[in-house]
Amino acid sequence: MSSLHLRKLKSFIFLIFCLVSASIALFFLLFILYEVIKNGLQAFNIALFSEDFKPAFLGGGGLRHALVGQFLMTIVASIIGIPLGIAGGIYVAEYGKGTRTAKLLSNISDMAISVPSIIVGTFIFGLIVMPFHGFSGWAGTISLIILLLPIIIRSTEENINQVSPLLRETAYALGAPRYLVIKDVVLKSAKQGIITGVILAISRIAGETAPLLFTSANFSQLTFDMSNVIPSLTITIYDYTNLPDQVYLNLAWSGSLLVTIVILFINILARYIFTKK
């Protein structure tokens, strides 16, 4: 029965391989969380939220300007992008269902989800920033919208497709016109899934850096002017890392802690809404 022993040994070695793999993954997760929390707490105070950039000899200030800028662009991008995306998804799954255009749109959106965000950044850089000689909050917002759209189109499409055809047929049988069936039956049934998709899409863009780097650039003071350069948390983290003063590095860590908390919170929220279903 030595072949049995050999097989058991192989199986044991395999168990060790899996155990080591999981340990490696877990080790790095704990490593990153530990470092972000430990370093992030150093400058995590009221000033972080109440002060803008200050010179190092004045303590470096806080990240209010960056938070506001990132929030502004994310919100505006969501306000514009969500309805557009949902409308596009409705077209793919309802009005255009089965047509060549709808299939193309569905496939292109599917592909676009996986396109690196830097591509969108350089695209807006080449389309808007370069020809008009200027970085701006609007350019940043547009690149975020472009990242948002395919995710929402696809998730809306998938959620609508899951609505039972029977339900739809019942509504049509009552003589309801198509737009009312979509509004009252289809969207209502698919609501939870669509909302989950929207929240996950927002969490994708809320922590983005690369597209903003090429579009909205950065600024050291609080501003609401979207037609000019505008600060964002993520790019401020990037820029602060390379400044010589330790205070800015601490702020960068605090910013990282903050953005991690926000993104994780949004993800948990999405998961909660999804499981409530």
Binding site: L29, T209, I237, T241, S256, V259, T260, I263, N267
Partner: peptide
């Protein structure tokens, strides 16, 4: 835990990668 690891934004991976 593994999904947490996936949700962390890339800027945080960058800063951590560089400094830690």
């Amino acid at each position: 835990a593994i999904e947490l690891l996936a949700a962390i934004p890339s800027i945080v991976y960058g800063l951590w990668g560089y400094k830690s």
